[in-house]
């Protein structure tokens, strides 16, 4: 599959995403500069983590206006698959491609640590390859990852199966202690109603190799690749 990894000034995890896609998963991946107005021929878009535009004003709020994001809007509107990680998740929320918003961690401090994630539904292009009942151990690294949405939106998202991942303890319980940032309902990641756009605060690209302490996060990329292959097959048939 061909992946576009967006590169904003201040993107920090762009190379990490390319590394995992290419060297771990054997996919083709290219960096797309924020000033580009076209994504080229790609099967999916990754919006990586970092501090796009320095995160001045508000995280992700400037990046949404970049030329490349106009192309991503179009790509997503046409059913293209987009995954935002950390700052990428914040950008997708700011851009209105995902519901809700990410605000300052309740601790008011940046947090970098491993957390456990429960996959809420396998019925999405981003979760279909996660083993049944498997808790994923994936690191977080953010200062503004507290997920917020109004009650009505949350109810709708739950009804539609749009909450994809939640922070949990080692036994899968959604406790306050397991919630690293104060997110509502321990939400770590969500998708849009059409399920072609998703975002999460944890970094699956940092949890895709045993040498870095575990490869649970790989299942998210594998799910996406699987979904893209099916889509390709459906198109061919």
């Amino acid at each position: 599959m061909n992946f576009a990894v967006l590169q904003f000034p201040g993107s920090n995890c762009d190379q990490d995403c390319v590394h995992v896609l290419k060297n771990v998963l054997g996919q083709s991946a290219k960096l797309v500069w924020h000033k580009d107005t076209s994504l080229g021929e790609v099967d999916a878009v990754l919006v990586p983590g970092g501090f796009s535009y320095g995160d001045y004003l508000r995280t992700g709020s400037i990046a949404r206006f970049s030329p490349v994001m106009q192309a991503v809007q179009q790509f997503a509107a046409n059913g293209g698959h987009v995954l935002g990680i950390c700052n990428g998740f914040q950008i997708l929320c700011e851009a209105g491609l995902l519901p809700g918003a990410l605000v300052r961690n309740r601790s008011l401090q940046f947090r970098c640590e491993q957390v456990y994630l429960k996959t809420v539904t396998k019925n999405s292009p981003f979760t279909n390859q996660v083993a049944d009942g498997k808790l994923m151990r994936v690191p977080i690294a953010h200062g503004e990852g507290c997920y917020f949405a109004d009650e009505e939106t949350l109810a709708k998202m739950n009804a539609n199966g749009q909450v994809l991942w939640q922070y949990c303890d080692v036994n899968g319980n959604l406790t306050d202690d397991a919630n690293p940032n104060g997110s509502l309902q321990n939400i770590a990641g969500v998708c849009n109603e059409a399920k072609n756009v998703a975002g999460l605060m944890p970094h699956p690209e940092r949890a895709s190799e045993a040498i870095l302490g575990g490869d649970d996060g790989k299942a998210i990329f594998e799910s996406l690749i699987h979904a893209l292959q099916n889509k390709g097959a459906a198109k061919a048939a």
Binding site: D16, F110, C112, E113, E205, R206, E209, L212
Partner: peptide
């Protein structure tokens, strides 16, 4: 825990 100690993979 306040430092990102994992970026760059």
């Amino acid at each position: 825990r306040q430092y990102d100690h994992m970026v760059r993979d």
